[in-house]
Every structure is written in C-alpha cells, then in structure tokens.
Design a binder for these strands. Structure first.
Lengths: 336, 336
DNA sequence: GGATGTTCCTGAACCGGTTCACTGAACCGT
DNA sequence: ACGGTTCAGTGAACCGGTTCAGGAACATCC
C-alpha cells in the first residue's frame, strides 16, 4: 500500500520556527533547562505545526521504549486473562504500553519469549513464571527490572515480587474439604515446569498430610477442553476421589463439564473447589467454592512496582497477597 | 536501579570483525545484495559476538516497528478477550507484536487511543469499532492500514474488513425465538456510539417487524455487574418480555445472574439467547443458546489481512463471516 | 573588581540501524 | 575488443530525537 506516511513535523522544524536550537526545543518540551517563557513559545509553535514527539526516535536516543513486557504463564486461564487486561489498562494509564505474551504453560517457550522481550528492549518485564527456577531470570535481571507475579523467582533475581500466599490458599481449601469429611482429594494443578520442588506443590503434600487427607496431584491444561479431559480421567479412576481441588477456576470449569458428562452431581457425588474466584464462578450451577484474591490489588501492586523499577527506585519490593476462602455450593459433605 | 545495560554488539562491530562495511553487514543479515559466502561469514561473526539487531534502531531507520495496534471495543467482554488473546498469538507467530488497548465502550476514548497508537507508530491497526462512523478512521486510514472487525467502517476508510453478518445472526436468533412463540423480546446490545443508524440495530427493528416480534432495545455494559443491573431493570418492568436476546454472551451471563436474583426460571419464565458462543456458555445451567462464529477463522483472517496491508499488498480485503445458531437449553416455549 | 556561580542556550556527537547513489569487477553476446 | 548488464560491496546521509561539554550573559559575594 503506497502509504504516503503524512510527514509529521520534526523537532528541527520547531527549532527553526522558534529560532532556537533543536536541543533547546527538546529541553523546553520536557520543561527543563529553559526559561518559562521559552517553554511557552516552544509549546505554542509545536501545537501550530502539529508536532508530536516521535516515540521511536526518542526510544533510540534515550534508551527507554515505554513498553513493558507482560509474560503470562498460560493465557488460556480466564483469570490470567483478567489480570492481563487489568495490567494493560493500568500501564496505559501511566503512559506505558504492555506487550502481552503467552507462554502457554511451556517453560521453553517462556525462556524464548523472555529473551525476545529483552531484545525488543522493553523497559521492564512482568512475569507469571511457569518455571520460577529458570536461569533466564538471572540473565534478564541484570539488564531489566523484572517483577514476578504469583511465584518468587528462585535466586532473588527479581526486582520486585507480588506473590500469593499460595500455602495459605491451599490450607484454606484443604481444611475446608477436610471439615466436610473428605479424605481422598484430587488436586488439579496447571501444567508447569517439571521442577518437582515447587513450593506450592510441596506444600500441598505437607498440608494434606498434616490435615489428614490423601491427595493425588495431577497436572492439567488450563483451557476448557483440556481441563475437561483431565478431570474425566481423574473421575473415571477406580478409586474416585470425593473432592477435586483445582488450582485455577478455569480448571474447575473443566471439572464441571466432566461431572456433567459423567452424570455426577456436584456436590452430591463429588465436591469441587477452585482457586482465583473468577467472576463467572459465582454464576455456575452450583456456584463454585473458590479461593479469592484481590485482583485489583495485584494489578496495581505489580504495576506500581515495575514502574518504580523502571524509574530507578533502588528499593526492591516484595508484596504478599493473602487469600480468603469463598465457600459456595460446589463443596458439600462427603458422600456416605 | 543502576542498570548496567550490558552493552550489546552493534552492527559496526560486526563490520569490523568481518572487514566489511556496516551496510554490507546490514544487507547480509537480511540475506540480500550479498554473496552466499559473505552472508555465511557475517552470520557466524554475529553469532560469535552475540549480536542481535536493535529493533528500535531498525524501526527508526526503516519506518516500521513490527507492532500492530489492537483496539478492542470493550475488553470486559469475555469473547473479545478471547479474540485479543488469539490475535496477539497469531501476530507473534508472524514476528509481530500486538499492543492491546481497550476503548471500554467509549467512543471518545476510542478516538484518543486510535490517535495514540498512530503516534506510537504501529505498522497497522486492527479495530473492533465502537463507533464505525467516527472521523478518526479516515484520518488513520491515510497513514496506516486499518482492519476492522465486526462492523464496516463508514466511508470505506479501512484497508480490510472482517465483518460478521450480524443481520444473519439477528435473523437466526429472532426467528428461533419467534418459533418458540415469543412475541415480546428485549434486545440487550453493548453500549455503543449513539449513532442511531448502526446497521445491526436498524436490522433488529426491521427483522423484528418482518417476523412479527415486538422488540425493546436496551444498551448494556459488558461486564458482569453492569450487565446484571441492566437485565434486572429490563426484567423488572411491568410488561416483562418473555425472552432476552443478548448481543454478547457476556451480557447473557448478566441476564442469568439477574434471573437468579429475581427467582425467574430459564427458560420456564424467560428465555435467554446470546451472541458469540463463548466456551463458558455451554457450561452454564441451562446451557446458553447462542449465535456462533468461528473465532479461529476471524483471528486468522484479521491477521492475514493486516499483515498483507503492512507488506504493501494493494488489494483490499473484505471477509464476511456467517453465523450459525446453537440452540441449547436456555430458550424454550413462551410461557402460556 | 575579580572570582565564582547560575541560568539559558548552542553545536556537535550520538543512539544503531537502513538506504541510496555509486564503483569496480566479472560476465555477456557479438 | 567493446559496450552493456549484473553482482557485490562501499561511503555517507539519514531517521528524529537526547545528551554532554561549553559558552555568553547576568547576578552574587567578599
């Protein structure tokens, strides 16, 4: 398409119009190193010429792009979608743009995308790590502020962290199920790096043991068909668990689909608990019991921290979010 | 943060290492105007030096950023979230990045964001217009390829269009409801520009008249609380409609919440039909009758067309998507 | 009154690629 | 042997800002 690229005015034209040097104009437009009166004159000339700073040129010269990378662990998950949307908006409100990428639960893909974002010269990176122990975080950490959401990056390579007290969430859910009499629970966690020592997973086992529940941990994709299939397998086993604890609501939705397909009643035959409390969860039949986090708080914390990092604040931040349990009707007394 | 910005190698260093001019290296790396043997040498030297092209510098010199703007009408809508995610992925697969912005149903905001994206020098713009008749599209159309999704931009200012045959969708839904005996239907459409002559809206009235249904058109926000409130109002009216036709599934979810709050049975007391067929819709109780579009097809069409536009293909494209009706259990015979 | 600062502005280098005009050499057919 | 192409590569300008060293003008201080 022969785009005529509608030549916009440059800083040198504004300089010519005002009789100043380009440097002076550059300063004036940023309100520094110039007299109030000059700034006034420059602004006026700029407006008349329809001058708009060229972000690319500015980025090249100043070394900052105004872009923040957002690397999501798995955007199939509706909750992560909400988070991404929220972060995109919040960044925009601070004059920055988000580049949203999706590792789709694959640790290798995550590494590739992370490098790609660095090469793209984003000013900062927000990541929901698939593999919090990957070496790539150390590598990125030396050239960018990195903020992790959800899990701590191993080795302290993050500039900031907004971590969830997953342990508390797990405890809440498992105790809730125990109280209802469940002793055999399947835990469906998102497909993740095969690091077997992820703190949350370890905690599931430890807590289950402490509380007195036999758990069976299974990984699951986050999309509806994938999660449904996983749940079908779990529920089709000989020794069917009496409750499913899903590490994201999206997975719980798959569990619902599976119970429906198998003709199982929730919570009559099997209880289901979720994690995240997506708005849709209240709308299902029965409404889904879920562990709730304050998503707005997470969004704003993450954005505040990454912006701080970009602006050179030296103090690292670690913000811990506490969950609460929202007991609804998908969990009930253990059958017989 | 004293980021040491880990100096990466530049093209001139590669030039020095190979004994070529920077220009030759630039050409060689892009595989043009140089001998196979030189390209080989250059690639090798680049690898050894850890050279990666600097996208910003490239963008400044070449005038293309590799970024595509994606301006969504209202990201509250789960279906639009799916679309955004899909488009982001598909663009990335073609070595491009998406900048996803959200007009939140506000036409003024849409104009501002559109201009902002242009000033940000995106190579192209994909938009789900809130106001297809806005003047801004003409303005953008002269400096960028613009692809609209959903509605045609008035005045033919788009380079390409992936439009939905909304009329057909409306017809499908209304005829379905008519067949079930409904004669009084409320239509909940997303909050939009106040252009009263939007083709889809006009068509609702025309089709309703043709078919013999009295319609009452109401605009609604797309988020769950907003849509719930709108539905509550509609269902609380003296002359309550016997069916709700929601122009997006997200609005239908609000309708479900409202019926629940009012103690109305679906479809016993009121039928609900949606539009878009989001994956969650099959999971509700009762499963939602919805007008279905092939979202993958939409994603790939839009991306194919915008990439064509960016690459200078002169032929404009208009792709029309046809809907199909997925009758599920949320629509039933009109009470008495 | 000379040393010392400020304030405001300039010139030039710089960021790191791309592109255009041009050159020297090789290759072509006759 | 000759004019005409094609190929591979060069040098310099260029994209449009930012930044740094420095300088003129003016105020301040002892």
């Amino acid at each position: 398409m022969a785009q005529q690229q509608r030549k916009r005015a440059t800083i040198r034209e504004v300089a010519k119009a005002t009789g100043l040097s380009p440097a002076a104009v550059s300063y004036a437009l940023r309100g520094i190193q110039t007299s109030e009166e000059t700034q006034q004159r420059v602004r006026e000339a700029a407006r008349e010429l329809g001058y708009e700073a060229h972000p690319i040129a500015r980025a090249l010269a100043s070394g900052r792009t105004g872009m923040v990378g957002l690397l999501c662990g798995s955007l199939e998950d509706l909750w992560q979608q909400s988070l991404a949307v929220g972060i995109g908006r919040a960044l925009f409100a601070r004059d920055r743009y988000a580049i949203i990428l999706d590792a789709a639960g694959d640790p290798e893909r995550e590494v590739t995308l992370a490098r790609q974002l660095r090469d793209q010269r984003v000013d900062g990176l927000i990541v929901q790590p698939v593999d919090p122990a990957a070496d790539v975080w150390a590598e990125l950490g030396e050239s960018l502020p990195v903020v992790s959401i959800g899990d701590s990056l191993r080795g302290g390579h993050a500039y900031g962290e907004v971590v969830f007290d997953n342990r508390a969430g797990v405890t809440l859910a498992l105790e809730h199920l125990h109280q209802l009499g469940h002793r055999r629970v399947a835990v469906l966690t998102p497909t993740r790096a095969s690091t077997p020592d992820r703190p949350a997973d370890v905690h599931v086992h430890a807590e289950a043991e402490r509380i007195g529940i036999a758990v069976h941990v299974v990984t699951s994709p986050q999309d509806l068909p994938g999660a449904t299939e996983t749940a079908l397998t779990v529920l089709g086993e000989a020794d069917r668990p009496t409750a499913l604890f899903c590490f994201s609501d999206s997975i719980a939705y798959g569990a619902y689909a599976a119970t429906r397909a198998l003709g199982l009643a929730v919570p009559g035959d099997v209880s289901v608990a979720g994690f995240d409390n997506h708005p849709m969860s209240a709308l299902l039949t029965p409404p889904l019991t879920s562990v709730d986090w304050d998503i707005d708080d997470i969004v704003h914390s993450a954005v505040r921290v990454i912006v701080g990092g970009i602006d050179g604040k030296p103090r690292r931040r670690r913000i811990v979010c506490e969950p609460s349990l929202l007991p609804r009707e998908s969990t009930g007394k253990c059958p017989q």
